[in-house]
Write a protein that binds this DNA or RNA. Sequence first.
DNA 1: TAAAATGTTCAAAAACATTCACGGAGTATC
DNA 2: GATACTCCGTGAATGTTTTTGAACATTTTA
Lengths: 261, 261
Amino acid sequence: MSTIPAGRHQYILSQIGQHGTVNVADLAGELSVSELTIRRDLDQLAKNGLVERTHGGATARRNLPIEPDYVQKASEFPREKEAIGRTVASMVEEGDTLYINSGSTTFEVIRAVVALEKKLTIVTNNIDAIYLCKEHEHVRLILAGGVYRPRSHSVSGSLSSLLVSEIYANKAIIGVDGFSLTAGLSTPILEEAETTRAMIEHTVGKVIVVATGNKIGVVSNFKTVSPDRVDILVTDSHGGEIIAQMETHEGLQVVIADTKE
Amino acid sequence: MSTIPAGRHQYILSQIGQHGTVNVADLAGELSVSELTIRRDLDQLAKNGLVERTHGGATARRNLPIEPDYVQKASEFPREKEAIGRTVASMVEEGDTLYINSGSTTFEVIRAVVALEKKLTIVTNNIDAIYLCKEHEHVRLILAGGVYRPRSHSVSGSLSSLLVSEIYANKAIIGVDGFSLTAGLSTPILEEAETTRAMIEHTVGKVIVVATGNKIGVVSNFKTVSPDRVDILVTDSHGGEIIAQMETHEGLQVVIADTKE
DNA sequence: TAAAATGTTCAAAAACATTCACGGAGTATC
DNA sequence: GATACTCCGTGAATGTTTTTGAACATTTTA
């Protein structure tokens, strides 16, 4: 009898494959370990998405893990992005319909916005938004369709724009890879640029751009819209002197998000 | 043998799948638990939309008052669904563009189809398809947009149909909650019915319906399309005598998926 | 109306989460 | 080479939650 954990796991999985379910007491007897150890084995297998944990044992898992690997989230400027999210959330009002495009900064915005517990409609092409909205009854999530891009966990392209053209939002929250007063908003992906542009064009209220300081003054490959279309820029305190120029730009309100404590 | 709640549920569902009905007294005897426990099991299954509760037992759903929980449903007939998936995958050819609607059976189809390593385009409203296609370079995944439905892990509604109306596929693989020769395809959710209908209408090739045996002869709330529009039905061996009628139906090819060994 | 099935409440039992301690494998330090 | 050290898997002890079954009143079915 294999005494190592990996051997037990293999045995458990084969039992589940054979019978559909297993129970803790039987496994403990068959493998000559305590029930506690079996429980820990099952918990681990469940965490890896290999089995479905139930009271008293486990069952085969045909469906997928609910919680995917989006935990990696904002690896670059987590504190700044979280602060930006909080700041933008304070601008959202009950009943708003929001366009939110994809990206790690706007993901943090969605996280902060759904936490408000306000009645909202969110229209986004960020697939990961699902996990944030899933358990929030008060948020209606409309996902843009289109071609799925694994790298960015988003959908984009002309099919997305088609759906966007049917919806008018009263605020757009746009993450960018580059924001410059001369070149406007820009992203490295053509399809993303198209979808983002469609969102902005179908917004009747404020267009809020979110960008960490390192994006300010940067120009990426594909232009989305000109800077004049932007009403509010929410960024952090690392934008450098270009921020000062932007603050004097007519029609553009610059908000610096506080990374508190 | 000591059985856990989940194991009992599985057994009860398989009994219902085979015989159509179950009664409390028999189950209590077969599973060596009190009738009260069986009643509680049945109540729970009914609450999740998996069975229809009656006095003295339960029956297969004749109609569906509530939206079944996807996670629960996914573990209903794992072997049968896997077999159906494998069978449908053998009908798919290199270069196909497939419409696949949402549901736990079609999910298994997607799983089997992407494993083929063929170059394909999959258009679906099943959100979980993302995890199956994420690491398969040869599959282009187009996600239908629309309102997200947490309980069924899908998007649906008029916005989805809008996107679907732009795409013509050469095969449609459709999961249903009810398939009857008189009433046709039906589902418990209006929006799903609409999206599925749009998919079928924009398919130029074969329409393949997948359904485990317990769905055969069942009528749910909202009709999708008439049975004449269906070319192939892939099901398992638990369909009962209605299958024989279907096999004689003109223009409908019935395929029984083998749950190997 | 009588029998069967159900709903409800409550207590016991089973399974669980959590914390702590033990012991072996490997590593670092002297 | 010995000691101390951490890391990991394991099991015991504790209190908590879930599940189960009995008892009794109520409803449904025949």
